[in-house]
């Protein structure tokens, strides 16, 4: 029953024609809690459990949720930094001669193919201070994808790096080439991180909270830059964030995650204007309002986010849900159901 519903979900999300850039079905990642050489792990952290979504070319999907809900794990799975426990990821990257190429199952990508895959799928990391080798210059950092993939000769790479530095707004580019990361501000470093991800011309980029470590003053600059680049270069983002305002600004669609599950997914304005899942409502009510007289009606969300170690087979949100019923307790985690055009919710009470 579960497997069938996913096939339907992904088919509908792709618009029925199967032209999604990235299609994820039943993606699951479990981390063993303790592993030793001689003993099988008995408990697992269910970091990502049965997640399905798809991403059209040029579309940006926001993945929203609180810390520890598995957003970053989804991102890492999508760029093959870690391998899924089960589930399927397929990519349909544009082929060199225009038009979209063949769909590729991510689990079959090996060594030589992996290099080609890395040209199409890149990642921008959260921490601009730790995601760059402190001993390498900005040129080395940005040219790394080109160098390890053997793209062009030295002078070509210098040209390409200069060009991308100008595109991300670090000008004059020549004066940045031979600086070290510690000589740059956080915003400048994040621009370098964006340049590194985009220098090889990917069509899909996982952006893992690229603005969360930055000053508020440089956030909008980075976000605007990322949008302009996405539009100019035809890039799809999977934009991971915990900030709904950022997701609203950056994304066409938003998926809300809770404890390794996507609980609601819809077009940005539809999701924000008509939240159906109690968790989404709670998230929205937590967005600060710049009005001291504003009295928010506090949603009745109890307790704290727990680690999903061997979770009981019922709705993941049951323990904290204000509208939970006996039905929620006695049944497995609710499947994703369509409550409006493209508005998917996993809740029995929605």
């Amino acid at each position: 029953m579960v497997a069938d519903s996913h096939a339907v979900v992904s088919d509908l999300l792709m618009g029925g024609n199967g032209q999604a850039l990235v299609a994820v079905e039943g993606l699951t990642k479990r981390f063993p809690v303790s592993k030793s050489l001689f003993r099988q792990a008995s408990s697992f952290i269910h970091a990502v459990e049965d997640v399905s979504f798809s991403l059209a070319p040029g579309e940006s999907l926001g993945l929203v949720g609180e810390s520890g809900c598995g957003k970053t794990t989804v991102g890492k799975l999508l760029v093959k930094l870690i391998e899924p426990t089960s589930g399927q990821i397929s990519f349909r990257f544009p082929s060199p001669d225009a038009g979209s190429g063949e769909a590729v199952d991510a689990s079959t990508i090996r060594s030589a193919d992996l290099r080609a895959f890395r040209r199409q799928a890149q990642m921008i990391f959260q921490d601009p201070y730790e995601s760059m080798n402190p001993r390498r210059t900005i040129y080395d950092t940005i040219a790394e994808p080109l160098a390890v993939q053997g793209v062009g000769h030295l002078t070509d790479r210098v040209d390409r790096v200069t060009e991308i530095l100008t595109q991300v707004g670090l000008t004059p580019a020549g004066s940045f080439l031979f600086r070290h990361p510690h000589e740059l501000s956080g915003g400048q470093r994040q621009r370098v991180a964006i340049a590194r991800a985009l220098v090889i011309g990917p069509s899909f980029v996982v952006a893992d909270e690229p603005t969360s470590m930055l000053d508020v003053s440089s956030r909008t600059g980075i976000m605007t830059l990322m949008q302009n680049l996405a539009q100019g270069l035809g890039i799809s983002y999977l934009y991971i964030t915990h900030d709904l305002a950022v997701a609203r600004y950056m994304c066409h669609r938003i998926a809300v995650m809770y404890l390794g599950k996507i609980v609601e997914m819809a077009e940005t304005e539809e999701l924000l204007g008509n939240p159906l899942h109690p968790y989404t409502r709670a998230l929205l009510s937590a967005v600060p309002v710049p009005d001291p007289t504003y009295r928010r009606d506090r949603p009745d969300i109890r307790g704290d986010l727990t680690l999903p170690i061997n979770p009981p087979p019922r709705c993941r949100f049951y323990d904290r849900c204000p509208v939970a019923t006996d039905h929620c307790r006695d049944n497995p985690h609710p499947p994703m159901e369509e409550h409006g055009p493209g508005h998917w919710v996993a809740c029995y009470e929605a």
């Binding site: 760029v79 992996l114 890149q122 959260q126 995601s131 760059m132 790394e144 994808p145 390890v148």
Partner: peptide, 21 residues
């Protein structure tokens, strides 16, 4: 460190990561 992961996403192999990073 995240820059090791970044190097892997860039397409760097084991040898590259050990000797360059």
């Amino acid at each position: 460190k995240p820059y090791i992961e970044a190097a892997r996403v860039a397409g760097g192999g084991h040898f590259h990561i050990i000797f360059v990073h």
